[in-house]
Structure formats: C-alpha cells, structure tokens
Design a protein around this nucleic acid. Structure first.
Lengths: 196, 196
DNA sequence: CGACTTTTGGCCCTGAGTGTCATTAAGGTG
DNA sequence: CACCTTAATGACACTCAGGGCCAAAAGTCG
C-alpha cells in the first residue's frame, strides 16, 4: 500500500501527507482545530504555507488523511462479497469490514473521528466525503439489482448505511468502553426491531 | 407566524431576512452561489456588508432562511402525533407532514433545496442544520421509549429518518415530475423490503 | 427639544484559499 | 563536469468571509 513511486525526475517533495497529518494533529490537540492556523502547521512541518495547500486541498481535508484511497479499499470489500448472501446482509458485512481497524490502528482512528465529529467545521466538511462513500454503496447495490445508481433504492441504501454507521460512531466516541463493530451491528438490529 | 414585534424603540432595521433572501437568490441564479460575494448581496439589498452579517450568521445560512423556526413546527408536529400508532409509523408521518408544503410554497422550496443540494459549500453547511433536525426526532423517540436522547436507538432513528428524507429529496430534485411525499414513502417502503 | 435605545455601517484586522512565477533540486546526457 | 529537462517549492499578491469596535443615524418617550 501507499507506494507512491516518486517520478524520479524533478525536485523531490519537501514533505509527505503523513508528516503534515502528524504535525497538524499535534497542534490541534494543543490549541484546538479552529485556533490552529495553516501557517502554524506549515511552519511546524518546515514547509511553506503555499506548499501545504498542494498536499491538502483545504485545512478541513487534513484530518481525513488519504480517505479517497480507502474508498478503493471499500469498493474491493464490496466486490469481494459472497453472491449468495442477501444484498442487505452483504452490504452490512462490508460496512463492518470497512470499519474494522486493528487494535493498533483503532487508537489513531478514534482520535481522527473524535476530532472530526466534535468540530463543527469538520463535521460540515465531512458530508463531501460521506457522499463519495455512499456512492460506492449505491453503485454496488445498483449493479446487484440491475438498477441505475441514481435510482431511489440504491441511494436509500447508501444513505441508511451511513446513518447506521454514524449513529454507531457517535455513541462509540461518547463511550470509550464501547466496541465500534458491535455498535454498528446493534444499530442495524435496533433499526430492524424499530421497523418491526 | 413570524410576528417579530419590533421593539418600537431605537433605530428600525434597514431590511428583513426575506428581503435579503430574495435578493440573494436572484444573484445566485444569475452568477451562481460561489461567484456571488456577500458584498454584492448587501449592495443589492441596499445595506452595508456588516449589517448583512447581523441578519445571517454566514453566507451559507442565507439559503436556509428561518430554518430554526421550522424546527419548533416540527417539534409540534411530533408532539401532536397519535399515541396509539406504532412509534416508527408516527415518526414517519411526522416527517411527511413536515415536508408537506402547499403547491404554492413547493416551488420556492424546490428552488431552495435545489440550490443547497447542488452546491458543495451549502451541502456541507447543511449537516449542522440536519443535526438539529435529527435531535428533534431523537428527543421524541427517547421520550416515547423512556430512553436518553443520546442512546443508540433514538440517535439511529434520527439518522435513518434523515437518510430516507435526503434520498427522496435527491431523487425529487433530479426528476421534476416526481412527488416528494410519495418519494419519502417509497424510500421507507424500499428500505423495509430491502431489509426483508 | 433632549434623553434614551437600538441598529446601522464604516474601518480594520485575521485567516483561508488561489494564481503567478522565479527559484531550487533533483536526474539524465553529451 | 557543464547543461538541459522536469517537477516541486515558496514568496508575493490578491480576493473574500467573518468578526471586533465604535461613532453616527433614526427612531420613541417625556
């Protein structure tokens, strides 16, 4: 993973996404997201402000890291899904697998999502990421049912899957003894019971 | 509704939310949201830029109009719900009633939502509004079930209700012959069938 | 009219984001 | 080694959103 073969030609990059992310998170922890200027992050990395905006489109994008890459992963998980399972079950399992970070990565993941879900500006920005994530599901559902990705059902399944995941995340972040995957599962069970 | 009794004392306001909204929508139609500066809106209204920010917290808030007021309406609708209905049914009906604009208001509503859902910055900003809307549902569900509004189920029902509504809105805006309320209903039916 | 109250709008500042462009740091070639 | 090509850097300048501050404006009331 993450084999960005540098073009071997031209001036080499002065930093990496990972370096920026690290420095940024450190500053966010210290002063909070809003009170950390892009200037300060750039300085901490030892790079120009203008350069930082070539690595991340916006300040809001920094906490998300390389999210777009993880969408490919999500697509792969969905494609890997057993065809004999009911569609709703396979989507549900894919969502679980997507959110299954190891015990090591879980800490950083929690930190990341905690920051995002507790910062209004980031929460707002996150819909743009969520839309991409939902689209992956909608495409999968549409393909399985021979529908258009813009049809009501694929879109709905995308939205509802996200709804369940976000419900679980909110609870998870509020209770540090909780297990994320169990919560996603409980949210699904709760919904089904609720709808009888 | 909308009886803002002006204090009868002090300098009267130079404009109203409605006036600003109108002028803003006209400009958004002409040049698009991003290419319309707050300065231009203020000028169109005949008011200082600084003043405009006293009527709306941000440029992003303008298309939403007086959304916060409508939340009280939503709360009232939910409170008005017959107690003998299953909870999921009463929440669903409340969502329908909330989105039941008359044929006259429907046009302006469509314009508003069309702008919001097609403009990334507004789509992002909308989560903050949606969160308030979801909270209204979560509180209702929690009250009916003697749970905490932060518990998993109330939060989930809020998220899923929004998911269904947004799915319907997206389809509605893409197909101008569609009926919004029918779509919300179809989304719900589709979800239930999907979950078998 | 004068006192009081509330809003206006001008001024000025911070900070995000973007276009432009000369400079820099590589690798490759004769 | 000198030179060319390539690609990234970072400085500068600009626009625009948002917000603090405050004198001036525009009402009401006694």
């Amino acid at each position: 993973m993450d084999q960005r073969t540098r073009p071997a030609l031209g001036r080499p990059g002065a930093t990496t996404h990972e370096q920026i992310e690290e420095a940024a998170f450190r500053l966010f922890d210290e002063r909070g997201f809003a009170d950390t200027t892009v200037e300060a992050i750039a300085e901490a990395v030892g790079v120009g402000r203008r350069t930082l905006f070539r690595y991340f489109e916006s300040k809001n994008d920094i906490p998300w890291g390389r999210f777009t890459d993880s969408l490919d992963h999500f697509r792969a998980i969905l494609a890997d899904t057993p065809i004999d399972l009911p569609l709703h079950e396979s989507v549900h399992r894919a969502v679980l697998r997507f959110n299954d970070f190891g015990p090591e990565a879980a800490a950083q993941h929690r930190r990341r999502m905690g920051l995002i879900l507790s910062t209004p500006a980031l929460q707002a920005h996150s819909v743009l990421r969520y839309a991409q994530w939902r689209a992956v599901i909608a495409e999968h559902v549409a393909a399985r049912l021979s529908l258009d990705p813009g049809d009501l059902l694929p879109v709905t399944v995308g939205h509802v899957s996200l709804a369940l995941a976000l419900s679980a995340y909110e609870f998870w972040l509020a209770h540090d003894d909780a297990d994320l995957l169990e919560l996603i599962d409980s949210a699904m069970t709760g919904l089904r019971d609720h709808l009888r």
